[in-house]
Design a protein around this nucleic acid. Structure first.
Length: 270
DNA sequence: CGCACCCCCTGCCGGC
DNA sequence: TGCCGGCAGGGGGTGC
Protein backbone atom coordinates (compact mmCIF):
# COMPACT_ATOMS: atom_id res chain seq x y z
CA UNK A 1 0.00 0.00 0.00
CA UNK A 2 1.62 2.98 1.29
CA UNK A 3 4.29 4.28 -1.00
CA UNK A 4 6.02 7.65 -0.95
CA UNK A 5 2.94 9.82 -1.68
CA UNK A 6 0.85 8.11 0.98
CA UNK A 7 3.56 8.38 3.64
CA UNK A 8 4.21 12.00 2.68
CA UNK A 9 0.49 12.73 3.06
CA UNK A 10 0.35 11.09 6.48
CA UNK A 11 3.44 12.98 7.67
CA UNK A 12 2.29 16.37 6.39
CA UNK A 13 -1.10 15.86 8.00
CA UNK A 14 0.10 14.63 11.36
CA UNK A 15 3.19 16.79 11.84
CA UNK A 16 1.40 19.94 13.12
CA UNK A 17 -0.51 17.78 15.62
CA UNK A 18 2.40 15.67 16.85
CA UNK A 19 5.43 17.96 16.92
CA UNK A 20 5.82 19.34 20.42
CA UNK A 21 3.54 16.68 21.93
CA UNK A 22 4.79 14.34 24.62
CA UNK A 23 4.04 10.61 24.79
CA UNK A 24 2.22 9.76 28.02
CA UNK A 25 1.22 6.15 27.48
CA UNK A 26 2.04 3.32 25.11
CA UNK A 27 -0.19 0.28 24.82
CA UNK A 28 0.94 -2.62 22.67
CA UNK A 29 -2.06 -4.88 22.13
CA UNK A 30 -0.40 -7.09 19.50
CA UNK A 31 3.40 -7.14 19.24
CA UNK A 32 3.51 -9.79 16.50
CA UNK A 33 4.15 -7.67 13.42
CA UNK A 34 6.53 -8.75 10.62
CA UNK A 35 9.19 -8.15 13.24
CA UNK A 36 7.98 -8.51 16.82
CA UNK A 37 7.73 -5.16 18.60
CA UNK A 38 10.65 -4.99 21.05
CA UNK A 39 9.88 -5.48 24.77
CA UNK A 40 11.40 -2.06 25.56
CA UNK A 41 9.46 -0.24 22.83
CA UNK A 42 7.04 1.37 25.27
CA UNK A 43 9.85 2.38 27.62
CA UNK A 44 11.68 4.06 24.73
CA UNK A 45 8.67 6.26 23.93
CA UNK A 46 6.96 7.08 27.24
CA UNK A 47 7.95 10.52 28.50
CA UNK A 48 9.57 11.49 25.21
CA UNK A 49 8.61 14.63 23.35
CA UNK A 50 8.23 14.40 19.56
CA UNK A 51 10.57 17.01 18.10
CA UNK A 52 10.05 16.30 14.42
CA UNK A 53 8.04 14.21 12.02
CA UNK A 54 9.37 13.43 8.55
CA UNK A 55 9.25 10.90 5.74
CA UNK A 56 12.24 8.89 4.54
CA UNK A 57 11.39 6.58 1.65
CA UNK A 58 8.26 4.73 2.73
CA UNK A 59 9.03 5.19 6.44
CA UNK A 60 7.62 7.69 8.93
CA UNK A 61 10.47 9.05 11.06
CA UNK A 62 9.69 10.74 14.37
CA UNK A 63 12.59 12.54 16.06
CA UNK A 64 12.48 12.19 19.85
CA UNK A 65 13.84 14.59 22.46
CA UNK A 66 16.52 12.11 23.52
CA UNK A 67 17.94 12.10 19.99
CA UNK A 68 16.61 8.67 19.01
CA UNK A 69 14.29 8.07 16.06
CA UNK A 70 10.96 6.27 16.11
CA UNK A 71 10.39 4.56 12.76
CA UNK A 72 7.00 3.43 11.48
CA UNK A 73 6.79 1.31 8.33
CA UNK A 74 3.23 0.54 7.29
CA UNK A 75 3.86 -2.60 5.25
CA UNK A 76 0.89 -3.30 2.98
CA UNK A 77 -2.09 -2.44 5.17
CA UNK A 78 -0.78 -0.29 8.00
CA UNK A 79 -2.57 2.87 9.15
CA UNK A 80 -1.28 5.53 11.49
CA UNK A 81 -4.17 7.71 12.59
CA UNK A 82 -4.85 10.32 15.23
CA UNK A 83 -7.91 9.56 17.33
CA UNK A 84 -9.81 11.47 19.95
CA UNK A 85 -9.66 10.57 23.62
CA UNK A 86 -10.96 7.20 24.84
CA UNK A 87 -12.12 5.66 21.58
CA UNK A 88 -12.93 1.96 21.69
CA UNK A 89 -10.24 -0.22 20.09
CA UNK A 90 -11.20 -1.56 16.68
CA UNK A 91 -10.06 -4.79 15.08
CA UNK A 92 -6.35 -4.72 14.21
CA UNK A 93 -5.59 -1.69 16.40
CA UNK A 94 -2.22 -3.06 17.51
CA UNK A 95 -0.56 -0.09 19.22
CA UNK A 96 -1.97 3.01 20.92
CA UNK A 97 0.21 5.99 21.74
CA UNK A 98 -1.44 8.34 24.25
CA UNK A 99 -0.40 11.98 23.94
CA UNK A 100 -0.29 14.81 26.45
CA UNK A 101 -3.24 16.56 24.78
CA UNK A 102 -5.45 13.56 25.49
CA UNK A 103 -5.46 12.31 21.93
CA UNK A 104 -4.23 8.94 20.80
CA UNK A 105 -2.07 7.92 17.85
CA UNK A 106 -3.19 4.47 16.74
CA UNK A 107 -1.28 1.92 14.65
CA UNK A 108 -3.71 -0.40 12.86
CA UNK A 109 -2.56 -3.13 10.47
CA UNK A 110 -4.72 -5.97 9.14
CA UNK A 111 -1.90 -8.05 7.67
CA UNK A 112 0.70 -7.11 10.30
CA UNK A 113 3.50 -6.59 7.78
CA UNK A 114 4.41 -3.25 9.34
CA UNK A 115 7.29 -2.42 11.62
CA UNK A 116 7.64 -0.15 14.67
CA UNK A 117 11.13 0.38 16.04
CA UNK A 118 13.20 2.97 17.91
CA UNK A 119 16.76 3.36 16.65
CA UNK A 120 19.80 5.65 16.85
CA UNK A 121 19.88 8.38 14.18
CA UNK A 122 22.88 6.90 12.40
CA UNK A 123 20.92 3.68 11.83
CA UNK A 124 17.99 5.32 10.07
CA UNK A 125 19.45 5.27 6.57
CA UNK A 126 20.12 1.54 6.65
CA UNK A 127 16.65 0.85 8.04
CA UNK A 128 14.89 2.96 5.43
CA UNK A 129 16.92 1.82 2.42
CA UNK A 130 20.07 3.37 1.09
CA UNK A 131 18.62 4.56 -2.21
CA UNK A 132 18.14 8.11 -3.42
CA UNK A 133 15.05 10.14 -2.58
CA UNK A 134 13.28 10.34 -5.95
CA UNK A 135 12.21 13.94 -5.30
CA UNK A 136 15.66 14.95 -4.07
CA UNK A 137 18.38 16.87 -5.90
CA UNK A 138 20.51 13.75 -6.37
CA UNK A 139 17.95 11.80 -8.39
CA UNK A 140 19.24 13.08 -11.74
CA UNK A 141 19.14 11.21 -15.07
CA UNK A 142 22.92 10.86 -15.24
CA UNK A 143 23.08 9.53 -11.69
CA UNK A 144 20.41 6.90 -12.31
CA UNK A 145 22.04 5.94 -15.61
CA UNK A 146 25.33 5.45 -13.78
CA UNK A 147 23.68 3.27 -11.14
CA UNK A 148 22.05 1.17 -13.85
CA UNK A 149 25.21 0.70 -15.89
CA UNK A 150 25.87 -2.87 -16.94
CA UNK A 151 22.93 -4.10 -14.88
CA UNK A 152 20.42 -6.47 -16.40
CA UNK A 153 17.48 -5.90 -14.08
CA UNK A 154 14.27 -4.44 -15.50
CA UNK A 155 13.62 -0.72 -15.19
CA UNK A 156 10.58 -1.53 -13.04
CA UNK A 157 12.69 -3.58 -10.64
CA UNK A 158 15.18 -0.72 -10.63
CA UNK A 159 12.53 1.83 -9.62
CA UNK A 160 11.22 -0.43 -6.85
CA UNK A 161 14.60 -1.42 -5.39
CA UNK A 162 14.94 0.56 -2.15
CA UNK A 163 18.74 0.30 -2.39
CA UNK A 164 18.59 2.34 -5.59
CA UNK A 165 15.60 4.64 -5.04
CA UNK A 166 13.47 4.84 -1.91
CA UNK A 167 9.71 5.24 -1.76
CA UNK A 168 8.50 3.80 -5.07
CA UNK A 169 6.36 0.65 -4.93
CA UNK A 170 4.23 -1.37 -7.28
CA UNK A 171 1.52 1.19 -8.03
CA UNK A 172 3.75 4.15 -8.77
CA UNK A 173 6.32 2.13 -10.71
CA UNK A 174 3.63 1.21 -13.24
CA UNK A 175 2.30 4.78 -13.37
CA UNK A 176 5.78 6.30 -13.77
CA UNK A 177 6.70 3.97 -16.63
CA UNK A 178 3.47 4.79 -18.44
CA UNK A 179 4.24 8.50 -18.22
CA UNK A 180 7.83 7.82 -19.29
CA UNK A 181 6.63 5.76 -22.26
CA UNK A 182 8.77 2.75 -21.33
CA UNK A 183 7.78 -0.90 -21.12
CA UNK A 184 8.40 -2.12 -17.58
CA UNK A 185 10.61 -5.07 -18.52
CA UNK A 186 13.16 -2.97 -20.43
CA UNK A 187 16.68 -3.60 -19.08
CA UNK A 188 17.70 -0.67 -16.91
CA UNK A 189 21.28 -0.87 -18.12
CA UNK A 190 20.20 -0.37 -21.71
CA UNK A 191 18.17 2.83 -21.34
CA UNK A 192 19.55 5.91 -23.08
CA UNK A 193 20.21 9.12 -21.20
CA UNK A 194 17.18 10.62 -22.95
CA UNK A 195 15.08 7.74 -21.60
CA UNK A 196 16.43 8.30 -18.08
CA UNK A 197 15.47 11.95 -18.46
CA UNK A 198 11.92 10.81 -19.19
CA UNK A 199 12.00 8.48 -16.18
CA UNK A 200 13.11 11.27 -13.86
CA UNK A 201 10.56 13.74 -15.25
CA UNK A 202 7.76 11.17 -15.02
CA UNK A 203 8.78 10.21 -11.48
CA UNK A 204 8.59 13.81 -10.28
CA UNK A 205 5.37 14.47 -12.12
CA UNK A 206 3.58 11.35 -10.87
CA UNK A 207 4.78 11.53 -7.26
CA UNK A 208 4.05 15.25 -6.91
CA UNK A 209 0.61 14.83 -8.46
CA UNK A 210 -0.12 11.91 -6.17
CA UNK A 211 0.97 13.89 -3.10
CA UNK A 212 -1.29 16.76 -4.18
CA UNK A 213 -4.14 14.21 -4.32
CA UNK A 214 -3.36 12.81 -0.88
CA UNK A 215 -2.11 9.49 -2.26
CA UNK A 216 -4.00 6.51 -3.69
CA UNK A 217 -6.68 4.65 -1.74
CA UNK A 218 -7.10 1.23 -3.37
CA UNK A 219 -8.58 -0.46 -0.34
CA UNK A 220 -6.75 -0.05 2.94
CA UNK A 221 -4.89 3.23 2.76
CA UNK A 222 -6.13 6.10 4.95
CA UNK A 223 -4.33 9.32 5.83
CA UNK A 224 -3.51 10.37 9.39
CA UNK A 225 -7.13 11.36 10.01
CA UNK A 226 -8.74 8.35 8.33
CA UNK A 227 -9.31 10.30 5.12
CA UNK A 228 -9.10 8.80 1.63
CA UNK A 229 -6.61 9.64 -1.08
CA UNK A 230 -7.89 10.39 -4.57
CA UNK A 231 -4.98 9.69 -6.89
CA UNK A 232 -6.45 6.26 -7.71
CA UNK A 233 -8.92 8.22 -9.86
CA UNK A 234 -5.95 9.45 -11.91
CA UNK A 235 -4.24 6.10 -12.35
CA UNK A 236 -3.54 5.72 -16.06
CA UNK A 237 -2.67 2.01 -15.98
CA UNK A 238 -2.50 0.48 -12.49
CA UNK A 239 -5.34 -2.01 -12.06
CA UNK A 240 -6.75 -1.18 -15.50
CA UNK A 241 -5.84 -4.23 -17.61
CA UNK A 242 -8.42 -4.65 -20.35
CA UNK A 243 -9.53 -1.04 -20.24
CA UNK A 244 -8.70 1.42 -23.02
CA UNK A 245 -5.58 3.55 -22.68
CA UNK A 246 -6.45 7.13 -21.74
CA UNK A 247 -4.05 8.38 -24.40
CA UNK A 248 -4.53 6.03 -27.38
CA UNK A 249 -7.47 3.73 -26.48
CA UNK A 250 -5.42 0.55 -26.95
CA UNK A 251 -6.43 -2.17 -24.48
CA UNK A 252 -4.11 -1.99 -21.48
CA UNK A 253 -2.33 -5.16 -20.45
CA UNK A 254 -0.83 -6.64 -17.31
CA UNK A 255 2.15 -8.89 -16.91
CA UNK A 256 4.04 -10.22 -13.91
CA UNK A 257 7.54 -8.77 -13.60
CA UNK A 258 9.77 -9.93 -10.76
CA UNK A 259 6.76 -11.36 -9.02
CA UNK A 260 4.51 -8.31 -9.10
CA UNK A 261 1.68 -7.40 -11.45
CA UNK A 262 2.64 -4.65 -13.84
CA UNK A 263 0.28 -2.66 -16.00
CA UNK A 264 1.17 -0.99 -19.27
CA UNK A 265 -0.04 0.26 -22.63
CA UNK A 266 1.51 -1.77 -25.46
CA UNK A 267 1.21 1.21 -27.81
CA UNK A 268 2.33 4.16 -25.66
CA UNK A 269 5.16 2.30 -23.94
CA UNK A 270 8.13 1.03 -25.95
C1' DC B 1 23.72 -10.76 -10.42
C1' DG B 2 18.79 -11.36 -11.14
C1' DC B 3 15.04 -13.83 -10.41
C1' DA B 4 11.91 -17.61 -8.97
C1' DC B 5 10.10 -19.24 -5.03
C1' DC B 6 9.38 -19.52 -0.24
C1' DC B 7 7.90 -17.01 4.17
C1' DC B 8 5.35 -13.46 7.19
C1' DC B 9 -0.70 -12.33 7.71
C1' DT B 10 -5.71 -11.34 6.86
C1' DG B 11 -9.47 -10.35 3.79
C1' DC B 12 -11.88 -10.33 -0.38
C1' DC B 13 -13.41 -11.98 -4.74
C1' DG B 14 -14.59 -15.19 -8.33
C1' DG B 15 -15.34 -19.86 -9.73
C1' DC B 16 -17.28 -24.16 -8.96
C1' DT C 1 -24.59 -21.34 0.16
C1' DG C 2 -19.92 -22.61 1.12
C1' DC C 3 -15.38 -23.84 0.27
C1' DC C 4 -10.99 -23.06 -2.11
C1' DG C 5 -7.51 -20.91 -4.77
C1' DG C 6 -5.58 -16.67 -6.15
C1' DC C 7 -4.44 -12.19 -5.29
C1' DA C 8 -3.35 -7.72 -2.68
C1' DG C 9 0.29 -1.44 -1.68
C1' DG C 10 5.47 -4.34 2.05
C1' DG C 11 10.07 -6.77 2.73
C1' DG C 12 13.40 -10.69 3.66
C1' DG C 13 15.70 -15.16 2.90
C1' DT C 14 17.46 -19.07 0.08
C1' DG C 15 19.10 -21.22 -3.86
C1' DC C 16 19.82 -21.73 -8.79
Amino acid sequence: MPELPEIETIVRGLAPHLVGRAVCTVRVREPRLRERIAPDFARALVGREIHSLARAGKTVVAGLDDGLRWLVHLGMTGRLTLQGADVAPRPHDHVEIGLDDGRCLVYNDVRRFGRLVVVAPDAVAAEVGLGLEPLGEDARPDVLAARARRRRLSVKAFLMDQRLLVGIGNIYASEILFHAGLRPWRRAGRLSLAEWQRVVAATRHVLEDAIACGGSTISDYRDGFEGFGSYQLRHAVYGRAGEPCVRCATRLRSRVIVGRSSFYCPTCQR
